[in-house]
Design a protein around this nucleic acid. Structure first.
Length: 275
DNA sequence: AAGTGTCCCTGCGAGC
DNA sequence: TGCTCGCAGGGACACT
């Protein structure tokens, strides 16, 4: 599932592969609902002819400012992928949007489960405006103040993109394990030190995820890949996520799975007590 | 304001 | 081996 480190990895891969400066010469929508705005029928003519000026990330969104004042935004949700590849006579599996580039390559947004969305707009802030601060930018003191001013369970709060942008199920579980905090603790029950510790833990697991090119869980079509087809290498670095029944890397106690806000959650019951 | 439930989707792993 | 079944999950939304 693409979270901040996976999206960052995708962006870096696209920049490395020379996306910037390329012009869109052909466009096709393979699944109308993959386009949030404009209508799927207007999308191709509106994107054609524009150059990729920049590629950046905000939260879990891919942000591509194009020439002519428009911005292309893509949210991969759970199973979305970007493929940048030489053209083939056949579309890649689950192709939802295909952009032919002026160097002959194709930029494809593929998404087996059809949850991903794209926007082509002059006003990217309508999509980005509600996002909370970036985990790698926020200062621990500011994070602590934000956290302590709310009264919510830690895990749902960390997954709330308006509270902090970019975290998903994997890195939330990892950060809570790192900070030795139970996911059901109420945010206003934390000490200042615990809150700062959580902020640092978030930065640590996110940086590690980026360094390892993201987390690829398995080999299937629904799992994360880089635009060139490589897999992320962060899975073996995970301490909690999907390690149910395996020993905690700190204390040896078995990792347990619970459900918090309809999301599977992994904790060490000894390191992360619910006081 | 916080929490819960539902919906969107379909590949895949578990169980038989 | 081949089948069925239910899980997985980000985010929008309705509702309590």
């Amino acid at each position: 599932m693409p979270e901040l480190p996976e999206v960052e990895t995708v962006i870096r891969g696209l920049v490395d592969d020379g996306l910037i400066g390329r012009r869109v010469v052909q466009a096709r929508v393979g699944w109308a609902r993959a386009v949030a705005t404009p209508s799927a029928s207007r999308f191709p003519s509106l994107v054609k002819g524009r150059r990729f000026k920049e590629a950046r990330r905000r939260g879990k969104l891919l942000v591509f400012p194009l020439s002519g004042g428009y911005t292309l935004l893509i949210h991969l949700r759970m199973t979305g992928r970007i493929i940048l590849a030489p053209p083939t006579h056949e579309d890649p599996p689950h192709m939802r949007i295909r952009l032919g580039l002026d160097d002959g390559r194709v930029f494809c947004f593929c998404d087996p489960r059809k949850f991903g969305r794209t926007w082509l707009t002059r006003e990217p802030e309508t999509v980005l405006g509600t996002l909370g601060p970036e985990p790698l930018d926020i200062k621990p003191a500011v994070f602590a103040e934000r956290l302590l001013s709310r009264s919510r369970q830690l895990k749902p709060l960390m997954l709330d993109q308006t509270f902090i942008a970019g975290l998903g199920n994997i890195y939330t579980d990892e950060a809570l394990w790192e900070a030795r905090l139970h996911p059901l603790r109420s945010s206003d029950s934390l000490s200042e030190d615990e809150a700062r510790c959580l902020c640092k833990a978030i930065k640590k697991v996110v940086r590690r995820g980026i360094r390892n090119l993201g987390t690829t869980l398995g080999g299937g079509i629904t799992n994360f890949q880089l635009p060139d087809g490589r897999k992320g290498e962060n899975r073996e670095k995970l301490a909690a996520y999907r390690r149910t029944g395996q020993p905690c890397l700190r204390c040896g106690q078995n990792i347990e799975r619970l459900v918090v806000g309809q999301r599977s959650t992994h904790i060490c019951p000894k390191c992360q007590p619910l006081k």
